Simulated scan of single mutants.
Amino acid sequence: MSPLLGAEQAVLGAVLLDPGQLSHLDWLAPDHFYRPVHQALFAALRKLRSDSHPAVGADGPVPLSWVTDAVKEAGLHVRGLTPVYPHVLIQACPRPEHAPVYGRMVLEGAIHRTVAQHAIRLHQVARADALQGEVDGALRSADVLTGVLTDLARRWGTEPRPVAPTSAPANGPAVPPPIQADQVAEDERFLLAVLTEQPGAMEQVVAWLRPGDFADPAHGQLYRCLGALHHRGEPIDRITLLWEAQRRGLLADGTLSGKQVTAICDGVGAGSAEWLGDRVMRSSLTRTAAASARAVRALAEDEALVPGRLINYALHALGPLDEVRARWETANGNPAPKPPASAPVPPPARVHVALARSTPRPVPPSSDHPSSAPTPSASRPPSRGHS
């Protein structure tokens, strides 16, 4: 049995044994459970509580109707639930008073699944946009993912902030071949030719186009050479470009050859550097969105990452996309979109229960201060009492 499945069974078993534990699990929602039968049972138990079931708040043993009514209510929404299964859940619960801890485990699993699902969605939309030459879908999906990460961070009780992982994953996801690689490469070669042959063309793109936006690294290095010539105020043509590539060692290390540079510069007709740069940026944006989505998904599938680190690492993985997007907005003269509104932040008390963190044990009084005593805040919450 996986730890997550055990936690789901344990939290349900705790509530079946002690309906009062629901008051410590207000922050836990039915969709946080992975198995549909567990979602239906938890929703049924919450409904019975809201309907003032006699078992809630009753003194003495829990009546059997609490279990049978929960099974009956859950059976209206899911198939395959038998009257025997609640007893399996009860046996799976070591101690009912540990329900907040079990619930935290369920919430952790839900956070990993939610982040992975939205990352997959972003990757799918980015690749679809790349096929159609669009970017709007990828940008919307990125906004949704950022909003989800922000909301999850606040519900978990941490501040959402990008943090770089201490070490890169041992085995990163394989990078698929570029979509429409031939068309993208043709656009990049055409743009480089226009920038080389048309005086002043660099002024149209230099403010927002970067070497990293080119899918072909050799094209990116050639654009870097053009940018260096432009920055120094030197004339730009096929000869000065070839000379700059040689000075940077690109011909010696095999990154470029004289024939490649000549082929790019020959046979160019009229063209708009701004329009071609826009096409290169579109490709760069969708390519970066897909790469960021793959990185976020790899983080979400790492079960060793606690939610706080997962969220902050994922926000960092979206950083390259944010940078490309900012330049995209500059190129198109559009203001940056407002971040999506997040859901209301739970009260601090609920966040504390959701985390179910252990409060430090009281420090024994020192011999030098015999009158010292632990403060009331140092005692453990009643929901996590131990015998």
Results as ranks from 00 to 15, higher is better:
L5K: 04
G6R: 04
G6E: 08
Q9K: 10
Y34D: 03
A44G: 13
L45K: 01
L48F: 14
D51H: 10
V62W: 09
W66F: 12
E73C: 13
V78I: 14
G80K: 00
G103A: 03
M105G: 03
V106M: 10
E108L: 06
G109K: 02
I120G: 13
L122H: 13
A128T: 10
A130W: 03
E134M: 11
A142E: 15
T146R: 11
V148H: 02
P162C: 12
A168N: 05
A170Y: 04
V175W: 02
P178A: 01
D182P: 03
A193R: 14
T196E: 04
Q198K: 07
P199N: 09
V205K: 00
A207T: 01
F214P: 10
R224A: 12
A228H: 07
L229C: 09
H230D: 12
H231E: 14
G233K: 02
I236R: 04
R238D: 14
I239V: 14
A245F: 08
Q246V: 09
Q246S: 12
Q246Y: 07
R248P: 05
R248L: 13
L251G: 06
G258V: 06
A263R: 03
I264W: 02
A273Y: 00
G277I: 06
R279E: 14
T288K: 04
A290G: 13
S292Q: 06
R297D: 15
A298N: 15
D302Q: 15
L305Y: 11
G308L: 09
I311C: 10
E323W: 00
V324K: 03
G333V: 05
P337M: 04
P346C: 07
R350P: 02
A354K: 03
A356N: 06
P362W: 05
S366Y: 02
H369L: 14
P370T: 07
S379T: 01
S379Q: 05
P381D: 08
P382Y: 00
